[in-house]
Amino acid sequence: MTASTPEDRRYLASHEWHKPEGGYVLIGISQHAVEELTDITYVDVSLTVGSLVSSGDSFGEIESVKATSELYCGIDGRIAEINQAVLDNPSLINEDCYGKGWILKLEPSDIKQLEFMLSAVDYEAAAGG
């Protein structure tokens, strides 16, 4: 029932996707997470551009009508950009969670770390979709 999970990126079991793009990694949340959360009302990134994150770190919080949850990063790196459009209009994630609804852009320390994360197929199995 879930829309197809893009295979051009890697996933955490906690539903964040990580997409390599031009030497950077974009991070957002999956369609499965969006369906569980329902309408997104608030996104906060607790770190600033330029700060360092490590794999397993929480980098912010996301809220919907139904729930509040933490956002996790699956890779080490430096924050290059935060999607201000999503902070201003969180419903962008409901509209297009794999595209316009990206949250964080990271300059990875080691892009190979992506390989330790779940493939689309493994993520779908893990998410019960």
Binding site: T38, D39, V65, K66
Partner: peptide, 8 residues
Amino acid sequence: PLHYGSIL
């Protein structure tokens, strides 16, 4: 039914 597309 929790919703039919959007709670809002």
